[in-house]
Design a protein around this nucleic acid. Structure first.
Length: 892
RNA sequence: GGGCGAUUAGCUCAGUUGGUUAGAGCGCUUGCCUCACAUGCAAGAGGUCACCUGUUCAAAUCAGGUAUCGCCCACCA
């Protein structure tokens, strides 16, 4: 088979993806006896294109799905897309704007037609992009939040909530986006620091006679003077000495001349502003509450277009809120009501979608009572039925849930699930039904019409984990895969989505929607800012896949994914993954070359059959390292420690397997030591399995180059396990492992000296092994290890020696000494200084150890193994000092 | 105002229950195109672990506090 020296992702990725998909590897077998494992994808918006957040979350979910599949689970990763009500509206309104139209010009029906066209055109784009990442989603189960069945789920949920009395319709202060022309929930308001002003306005006090007395007034401070038109009270703190006497009196609202009460309100901060607050129940959430408490009039002076209403004085009616502010301030000033104006900076609410300033206003909306739903949802997290990873998010979730507020679920938009509420125009009857009613169920009038509003997008998302599995029908999918196992998402939507899924899942399916919630890091741009396509900040994952391959990107992302809240990411970092992929590729290439040569083309032995026959310390060492890696990768993935898993694989494969084991194999093979072929094949193939969740395409390709069965996939393989007996066998040979580790240190030490002292590679160097440890000496001087030392450290001769150092440089590697005789090359002064420095360091260290060992507390309280280790160190260091002194003396 | 993170090498970050000489990648220096890989190999330099005070035989790690940065929540008009 052709085996190029570079791994070329483009040549293999498309092919293997099709292969997996066509062979049904992503579709679970509902008849199998295996345990189930399911992830339901956070549905991307149909308006979206794959960004780094998707790429990261897609990678993480795919890693777990493939890991679980290899571990023997029947897995389902269920994909889908969200109709994204407001986001889609924005897109279509943009299209309309190009023709100078608004959605109101073309009407609901025409608008919905355009929206469905948009959906048909765009929904698949992001899903296809997910495929290029390698996502093992079951595309036969792709769902859309507005599918017939999912819409039925939404309606069922709404009706059940309503019947239970959890959904109500009320006039309430809500966040209104004048641009989107809809209400939005508290969570969709984004607060931004804004530099503005604060105006101090004098409100004259009403005297008993009713005249306005110039010096008799109360001053209120406001950042929104235009709302004063709707003021219906002034509130002061009942404990505020300045105003105590005014409570119960009346003030006269300037410009409007309304008489408004001065009321006592404990929440008023005495320190802030003047300590007196204007109260505008119709346009401020806090004031709304105050208004309710004090039964104040609600005067709505700003309408849904952010214009002044007819409830305001004629002069201001129809003005925009900005214009009205200007004029009102001007009028206040000319009429002497404006005390002063100060610069002020505070946070103003904006629409998360379009950044328009939010107008809080009173409006008739649908709400979902959340307290009764939150209770069980809190319990399931408190008792750890649902676990957050990293754990700290648990508190974030709980804090929000403890203080949860009712959810405004109606939106004055068109694209979405229309509220299944019907009104009878004749008798005003309200019907909430599963089927569209044909007539009024009270007066049988046919004059009925459906509520115009639709539901918040997140209402359907809240049902996603079970609506996608078939709910409200009792489906096989639902029975087999609910509760799902993992929900992986970003921190932004813990409240918007995660919390609500838990509440609805418990309410409707009577069980948690998922067991684990993994909250991944936020990928930031190189500058530390959030990536933003519109601002041109950040990188495009699709370009990275195109340039470096999906495996490179995936591995890099996993490698960087730790528990921290965010990390910076830029293109250059993908080279880590790309280089690693290439390293794996080339190791595969080398091993396959060995296995392919005519004389080696025999059946290789299995792990079980060779494990107990292993004799060479090098083989024992590499198997030991391999087993450690299997364990740490498995453990890490079980607790979503992606970075740990990735770096364990990286280090093992590159440092241990390639740089040491493979290099040594070359030498051993030249000496006809054929057992390495078995070891190479066993370890390489198993590491491919371990690597597969991270690098699916690369590992599949290599798998096929080692297993000549065109119909099977690496996904059919079995995740490596560490057998206890295998572990024991190796454990008994720990002395063998340390033999090889000493050889490593020796080689490194010699290389070090050579490089440091600039000894050219053609210079002949003899290595004298001088140690009291007989086993060690025997091992190092044996034929193969000696060859290894010679080749790896570029030593020409290797001999046993009991000499004390004479005129030479000295390397000390623990209790082992290596003398490299060098005529005329050595710099004695430099060498002496180096030795003296080392002597000093070692002496210091020894002093520390001695202190420690003289300490009774240490001896009694420290673990025995630690004490033992310190005692060993002491002996080693004392020995070392002796030898260093001797070496220094020998230099003359 | 509250909560949560972060602060470790020039840069970006690891550091799993306190315990040998604090690690990696990139960058840098030196030497190598060694017949898997220059997307590579070998060697090296580089750190008062933000600061203070404690706890402990022992602190990057634990406690308390300070500073700076970031994220989230909250009704300061």
């Amino acid at each position: 088979m052709d085996f190029p020296t570079r791994y070329e992702p483009k040549l293999v990725e498309k092919h293997w993806y099709k292969f997996w998909e066509n062979q049904g590897y992503f579709t679970p077998n509902l008849k199998s006896k295996k345990p189930r494992f399911c992830i339901v994808i956070p549905p991307p918006n149909i308006t979206g294109v794959l960004h780094m957040g998707h790429a990261l979350n897609g990678t993480l979910q795919d890693i777990i799905i493939r890991f679980k599949k290899l571990q023997g689970y029947e897995t389902l990763w269920l994909p889908g897309v969200d109709h994204a009500s407001i986001a889609t509206h924005n897109q279509i309104e943009k299209l309309l704007a190009k023709q100078g139209k608004t959605r109101f010009d073309i009407g609901r029906e025409e608008f919905l037609k355009l929206a469905w066209e948009w959906k048909d055109k765009h929904a698949n784009i992001i899903l296809d992009q997910l495929k290029s990442l390698g996502a093992a989603c079951d595309w036969t189960r792709t769902r859309f939040t507005m599918d017939e069945q999912l819409s039925r789920a939404v309606r069922e949920a709404f009706v059940r909530f309503y019947e239970k009395g959890l959904i109500y319709k009320a006039y309430y202060i809500i966040n209104w986006c004048p641009r989107c022309h809809t209400s939005i929930s508290d969570l969709e308001v984004k607060y931004k620091e804004s530099a503005t002003k604060i105006w101090y306005i004098k409100y004259p006090l009403k005297t008993d006679s009713g005249e306005i007395v110039a010096k008799n007034y109360i001053v209120v401070a406001t950042t929104r003077p235009e709302t004063m038109l709707g003021d219906t009270a002034v509130a002061v703190n009942p404990n505020d000495e300045r105003y105590k006497s005014l409570i119960g009196k009346k003030a006269i609202l300037p410009l409007v001349n309304r008489v408004i009460p001065i009321i006592a309100e404990e929440t008023v901060d005495v320190e802030f502003g003047t300590g007196a607050v204007k109260v505008t129940p119709a346009h401020d959430p806090v004031d709304f509450e105050i208004g309710k408490k004090h039964k104040l009039e609600v005067v709505k002076v700003i309408d849904e277009d952010a214009k002044i209403t007819e409830q305001a004085p004629l002069k201001y009616q129809g003005l925009s809120r900005e214009k009205a502010r200007e004029l009102i301030v001007e009028d206040l000033a000319t009429q002497g009501y404006l005390e002063k104006v100060e610069d002020y900076s505070h946070r103003v609410g904006t629409c998360v979608r379009c950044e328009t300033l939010i107008e809080p206003l009173v409006s008739l909306q649908w709400f979902l009572k959340t307290k009764p739903l939150a209770e069980p949802a809190i319990k399931k997290v408190e008792d750890q039925s649902i676990r957050f990873y990293p754990q700290r998010w648990t508190k974030v979730y709980l804090d929000w849930m403890y203080n949860i507020r009712d959810w405004c679920i109606s939106r004055q938009l068109w694209w979405g699930h229309r509220i299944p509420a019907f009104y009878c125009d004749d008798c005003n009857n309200l019907m909430v039904t599963r089927e569209d009613p044909k007539e009024c169920n009270k007066c049988h009038s046919k004059n009925i019409r459906q509520d115009e509003d639709i539901l918040d997008t997140w209402f359907s998302s809240a049902l996603w984990p079970f609506s996608t599995l078939g709910w409200p029908d009792d489906t096989e999918d639902l029975r087999q895969f609910y509760p799902t196992n993992l929900l992986s998402t970003d921190p932004d939507i813990i409240f918007l989505w995660v919390a609500r899924m838990i509440m609805t899942g418990l309410e409707f399916v009577k069980d948690i929607p998922f067991k684990d919630v993994y909250i991944h890091s936020t990928v930031l741009a190189e500058t530390g800012e959030r990536m933003s396509r519109s601002k041109g900040i950040g990188v495009d994952p699709l370009l990275l896949i195109d340039k470096y391959g999906a495996c490179a990107l995936r591995f890099t992302l996993a490698y960087l994914e730790t528990e921290s809240q965010s990390y910076r990411f830029w293109e250059k970092k993908v080279e880590l993954g790309r280089n690693f992929a290439n390293k794996i590729w080339n190791a595969g290439r080398l091993i396959s070359m060995y296995l392919e040569t005519a004389e080696n083309r025999e059946e290789r032995h299995s792990l079980n059959s060779i494990i107990s026959t292993l004799k060479d310390p090098i083989d024992i060492w590499i198997f030991n390292r391999y087993f450690q890696t299997v364990e740490s990768v498995t453990n890490a993935l079980e607790r979503y420690a992606y970075s740990h898993a990735a770096s364990a694989l990286y280090t093992f494969f590159w440092d241990d397997f390639c740089d040491w084991y493979l290099e040594i194999c070359k030498i051993r093979l030249r000496n006809n030591d054929k057992i390495v072929l078995d070891v190479l094949k066993i370890i390489f193939e198993n590491v491919l399995i371990l690597l597969h969740p991270f690098m699916p395409f690369l590992t599949e390709e290599l798998w096929h180059r080692f297993n000549y069965q065109p119909t099977s996939s690496i996904l059919d393989a079995v995740w490596p396990k560490v057998d206890n007996t295998e572990k024991q066998i190796l454990h008994l040979q720990s002395s063998a492992i340390s033999l090889f580790e000493t050889l490593q240190k020796l080689v490194t030490g010699i290389r070090n000296i050579r490089a440091e002292m600039n000894i050219s590679s053609d210079k002949k160097v003899t290595c004298l092994i001088n140690t009291q440890d007989k086993t060690l000496k025997e091992y190092l001087l044996a034929a193969i290890p000696a060859k290894i030392i010679k080749e790896l450290a570029k030593v020409s001769e290797i001999e046993s020696s009991d000499h004390r150092p004479s005129q030479s440089s000295v390397v000390i590697i623990k209790d082992l000494e290596v003398y490299i005789p060098l005529t005329g090359v050595i710099n004695f002064e430099k060498e002496r200084k180096r030795l003296e420095d080392e002597l000093q360091t070692v002496q210091k260290e020894l002093d520390k150890i001695n202190n420690l060992l003289a300490n009774d507390d240490f001896l009694t309280k420290a673990k025995p193994s630690v004490v033992e280790r310190e005692q060993e160190r002491k002996m080693k260091y004392e020995d070392k000092i002796k030898r260093l002194r001797a070496a220094i003396a020998s230099l003359g």
